[in-house]
């Protein structure tokens, strides 16, 4: 169900992204026919783009294969396997992908940017902002709304903190990790000693070494760093399994 629309000229004048070579072609790929039509209308009328609609990944592939399409606005949930997967199948086509979603979450945005996506927009974007964003991407810029940029910066900082913790945690011995695991669960030294069949004095020594190796001032801070390190490790393992698949 490919729908082609072009309205690059208004009142006899070329507008928005239109040029001597004609309007820039944009694919709007979304399973929602209402949102597709709404985006098409805005991009065609206000931005001067030529718009092709696609309801799923297959239609997007066809749309991009037929004619050069510099930009594709793709729903994160595009059937059948999501927008990122659909973007992956366009390798080779010179199409810059911009994902959009109702409530974009920072982790998803980060994954998208890792996958060479040019931008991420909320579906609640204002019409003029959508036109500006798509024009920018067509001109080689990336696009991310201010709110999403702030979320992304926070997410990147969190990841950096986790990675730092993971590297420091790698310096711990097997026994120190066991002690830290129990400390992170909130157990006092006496309970840790009982569970690991070691003396309380040995536990204290391990905790002292753990704090020194992690560069943390307290048991609580060490426990938080341990959780960060564990999350970072899980993320790495998940990424490795995704790449292997």
């Amino acid at each position: 169900m490919l729908v082609e629309r072009c309205a690059g000229v208004r009142d006899g004048r070329a507008i928005g992204a239109s040029s001597a070579a004609g309007p820039t072609r944009v694919a709007v790929a979304d399973a929602d026919p209402v949102l597709r039509a709404a985006a098409r209308l805005v991009l065609a009328q206000q931005g001067g783009f030529s718009v092709v609609e696609a309801a799923d990944a297959d239609e997007l592939r066809q749309a991009v294969a037929h004619r050069p399409t510099p930009v594709a606005l793709v729903d994160v949930e595009l059937p059948p396997a999501g927008g990122l997967a659909a973007a992956g199948t366009l390798d080779g086509a010179a199409t810059r992908i911009v994902l959009w979603d109702y409530a974009p979450d920072p982790e998803r945005i980060l994954s998208a940017l890792r996958a060479n996506v040019y931008g991420f927009l909320p579906k609640t974007i204002a019409p003029a902002a959508l036109c500006r964003a798509v024009s920018g991407v067509a001109a080689g810029e990336a696009c991310l709304s201010r709110e999403l940029t702030a979320d992304l910066i926070e997410q990147v900082a969190k990841l950096a903190r986790r990675e730092r913790s993971r590297r420091r945690a790698a310096a711990l011995s097997e026994r120190e990790r066991e002690v830290l695991e129990l400390v992170a669960r909130g157990y006092p030294n006496r309970e840790v000693a009982k569970r690991l069949y070691i003396s309380e004095f040995t536990v204290k020594r391990h905790v002292h070494n753990i704090l020194a190796k992690l560069g943390e001032p307290s048991r609580r801070a060490a426990a938080a760093a341990y959780r960060d390190a564990r999350d970072a490790q899980n993320t790495l393992e998940a990424l490795a399994s995704t790449e292997a698949a």
Binding site: V34, L35, A37, A38, L41, V42, K123, T124, A126, P127
Partner: peptide, 12 residues
């Protein structure tokens, strides 16, 4: 609406 893109569509 909370989706500004809808407004142009409704008018259209």
């Amino acid at each position: 609406t909370g989706t500004p893109l809808l407004t142009g569509l409704l008018r259209d």
